[in-house]
Design a binder for these strands. Structure first.
Lengths: 110, 110
DNA sequence: ATAAGTTATCGTATTTTTGCGATAAAGGAG
DNA sequence: CTCCTTTATCGCAAAAATACGATAACTTAT
């Protein structure tokens, strides 16, 4: 039995990203950003039934997780996916799932 | 500008899995299960500072997300990763991230 | 300067999640 | 049978997430 060490910085970042994506609204925002290269915040707002302030909060969560990035374009803000963040996550998940043992503990019938 | 359609069943399942993994405690439980082939609930409990009932709740969340599976072994319960669930998730993430456009909206300086 | 449009943040209400103790169910040991 | 161990569930408290309106900051156009 191996004792669990506390989560590394990398894994905490991974958890933060997974949590950010593990919400239907944010998941849809990411999909929207992926599908639309024109990514002004207001377009995202119009695409949801939610208030502008709510969407802004969700964008903040995604931004802080490093999954999207915003850039001020004149009076508006252009959000796009953050390729570095997504590629990093993809890589980490790959490593993580590869390491994971899917072996089943041999069932000892008592 | 493309209008967003509501999330498909598959995507909702994906969100559910991401949410389940997007919690430090559950993430560690999964790591623990991956590292230890002996996966009795009580061992998981001993590995955390949390109460048994709390761990049981987290296991339920992971189980309902299809990420782990439990099997009653005598008086105890043996939990293991669910290979199908994880492989499905890995596959979906691969597809999802491959589809995602990382192109940046061309910045029009006004 | 004023007005219109866009976005971030603040305060707050509601909902959900997280955590715990107590309890019940179920199996195995004596 | 009784006792012990293990686990799931219930009820509840505390914490966090979610959503909204109001507001402030900022840009652009008039």
């Amino acid at each position: 039995m191996k004792k669990q060490s506390p989560l590394t910085l990398e894994k905490r970042r991974m958890v933060q990203m997974l949590k950010a994506l593990g919400n239907p609204v944010r998941f849809e925002i990411v999909e929207f950003l992926a599908e639309n290269q024109m990514c002004i915040t207001n377009d995202i707002v119009k695409n949801t039934p939610l208030a502008q302030s709510t969407v802004s909060q969700h964008l903040k969560v995604l931004r802080e997780a490093g999954l999207i990035q915003g850039e001020i374009e004149g009076p508006a803000t252009c959000y796009c996916l953050n390729p570095e963040g997504f590629n990093w996550l993809k890589e980490q998940i790959g490593i993580w799932l590869a390491d994971a043992s899917f072996e089943r503990h041999p069932v000892i019938k008592l």
